[in-house]
Amino acid sequence: MQATATRTGLRSQRKRPVQRLVRVALFLCAGLSVMVTGGIIYALAADTISFFKDVEPASFFLSADWAPQSGDFGVLELVFGTAIISLGAMLVAGPLGVATAIYLSEYANPRVRKVIKPILEVLAGVPTVVFGYFALNFVTPSLLRAVYPGCGIFNWASAAIVVGLFILPTVASLSEDAMRSVPTSLRHGAYGLGASKLRVSARVVAPAALSGIVAAIILGMSRAVGETMAVAIAAGATPQIAVNPCESIQTMTAYIVQVAGGEASTGSIQYGSIFALGSTLFLITLALNYVSIRFVKRFREAY
């Protein structure tokens, strides 16, 4: 082997140093993000563990009574707030975003798309406080109260709606990218069978782009989970499991900001609780990603 290789000159005598350098540099770049993730987990874990020395994990995770002043850390009330906002936002942004994407990718002519896409991107750039005030000044008084006059000024419905609007551009834009990258030949195959545009979009393009669409929705959802300001402004700060959409709630991030804003002293249980909340959020996001990967694997139509 060795002899043959040398005779034909196919094998270089030494490993190419530049190749090696590139490889190491790229590895370090990849390693950096792993290290940052590790660092974040470490920082979270340390304070979370010391928090759980003071508070029973069971009374944290399994109880729904969040009243830190009186020593009650039942996280479910805050988890409910976060979940209901994310799901509500998803209900707004999912269908609207995918419909927008289908329109932009399959229906709109290039000129219309050139106008609408930048507008969507501007929407994505609006500061979230503005969305909060939009909820307070428009969504609640003009929309919700038109349907249900007794609606509280701080309520989770308006918060979910504006967070949905806030993540809409993300969902629409990424879904559109996914759909546009579906090969034209698939569309032609379907049109050639006499399929209408709607059927081609819904039965061929969207399923083929499903993994991208789900990724877009999950990304939108994790932005909704993390969204703080708009929710704090629109939904108030009442930790409770409120089935009524017109009532106020508090989300995990909203509480974290409230405490980090100076209410609690470093080392106190309240201070520790925000790390426990951070860890919980982290786990929720992880679970979300895991579920979405499983989902995509199961239903993807890979072209």
């Binding site: 030949s185 698939l186 195959g189 050639g192 069978l193 061929v204 083929a208």
Partner: peptide, 14 residues
């Protein structure tokens, strides 16, 4: 629907 077509490259749906 009446006039079917087969394309140059096979294009089965995924």
């Amino acid at each position: 629907r009446r006039i079917g077509m087969v394309f140059q490259q096979p294009n089965p749906f995924p």
